[in-house]
Simulated scan of single mutants.
Amino acid sequence: MHRTCFIPCNLAAFRTTKQPSLGFTLVEMVIVVVLLAVLAVVAVPKFIDLTKSADQAVMKAQIASIAAARDMVTVQITLHPENLNANKSRFTLKSGQRIRIRGGYADGRWNNTFIHLVDISSTAQVTSNDCDEEGMDFCVRHRNSGWFRNPNRDYVDSASRGRGFVIYPNGYNLNTTKCYTYYYTPNDSVTPDNPQKPITGSDFSEC
């Protein structure tokens, strides 16, 4: 007579082999998505801040180079006055390039003066307030005294009648965003009665 088993008589027959996981469970995927979202919230602003800081560092270096070039030209004019033309509006550099002079200083012009004095790559001169030049990191635009003494900027006194240029990053608008460096000569003619030293500066308040 056979005995009836009320529990498995052969436990080995009921063993199952655990199958390997074929992918993420829904819960795991939700956790991953949440973690990525948190990382994005934390990391993206820091990345943007680093990019802005890099732009500002480059622009500070630009304005330092421009100021140094301005002073170098003044020294060269003192040492080699024979390189000035008759009406003292042009000066010939050692390289043979002729630049514009205003009041005994390098004129506030990019295309025929400072482009020969400083080496700033990936920069294009434009005629628009929007800097959207493909392949360029910065734009340069000439501005008259009215732009510099505008109440929103007020970088020069109301008596100034000079001119200058402004350098600003690609993707920015010159008039709507204060993120630029500048060079301005307050001298209103080639031979003013009281020559004044051109100013350099920057405004990163809205970068």
Results as ranks from 00 to 15, higher is better:
residue 45 P to Y: 05
residue 46 K to N: 09
residue 46 K to M: 11
residue 48 I to E: 15
residue 48 I to T: 07
residue 49 D to E: 15
residue 49 D to A: 13
residue 50 L to E: 14
residue 50 L to R: 12
residue 51 T to C: 11
residue 52 K to P: 08
residue 53 S to V: 08
residue 54 A to P: 00
residue 54 A to Y: 10
residue 55 D to H: 08
residue 55 D to Q: 12
residue 56 Q to S: 11
residue 56 Q to Y: 00
residue 56 Q to V: 14
residue 57 A to Q: 11
residue 57 A to P: 00
residue 58 V to F: 05
residue 58 V to I: 13
residue 59 M to G: 05
residue 59 M to S: 07
residue 61 A to D: 14
residue 61 A to G: 11
residue 61 A to F: 04
residue 64 A to C: 00
residue 65 S to T: 07
residue 66 I to E: 03
residue 67 A to W: 02
residue 69 A to C: 02
residue 70 R to T: 11
residue 70 R to Y: 04
residue 70 R to Q: 15
residue 71 D to G: 02
residue 71 D to V: 04
residue 71 D to T: 06
residue 72 M to G: 05
residue 72 M to P: 00
residue 72 M to R: 14
residue 72 M to C: 03
residue 73 V to S: 02
residue 74 T to R: 13
residue 74 T to L: 11
residue 77 I to S: 02
residue 78 T to F: 05
residue 78 T to H: 06
residue 79 L to S: 12
residue 80 H to F: 08
residue 80 H to C: 00
residue 81 P to T: 11
residue 82 E to Y: 04
residue 83 N to E: 03
residue 83 N to Q: 10
residue 83 N to F: 01
residue 84 L to Y: 03
residue 84 L to V: 01
residue 85 N to W: 01
residue 86 A to K: 09
residue 87 N to T: 10
residue 88 K to S: 11
residue 88 K to A: 13
residue 89 S to P: 03
residue 91 F to R: 04
residue 91 F to K: 03
residue 92 T to N: 01
residue 92 T to Q: 09
residue 93 L to W: 02
residue 94 K to G: 05
residue 95 S to R: 01
residue 97 Q to R: 08
residue 97 Q to P: 00
residue 98 R to S: 15
residue 98 R to I: 15
residue 98 R to P: 00
residue 100 R to T: 14
residue 100 R to L: 12
residue 101 I to M: 04
residue 101 I to H: 04
residue 101 I to Y: 03
residue 101 I to S: 04
residue 101 I to V: 14
residue 102 R to D: 09
residue 102 R to P: 03
residue 102 R to Q: 13
residue 102 R to V: 09
residue 103 G to P: 04
residue 104 G to H: 09
residue 104 G to Q: 09
residue 104 G to W: 08
residue 107 D to W: 11
residue 108 G to H: 11
residue 110 W to Q: 05
residue 111 N to A: 14
residue 112 N to I: 15
residue 113 T to G: 08
residue 114 F to D: 03
residue 114 F to M: 06
residue 114 F to H: 07
residue 115 I to H: 07
residue 118 V to W: 06
residue 120 I to Q: 07
residue 121 S to Q: 12
residue 122 S to F: 12
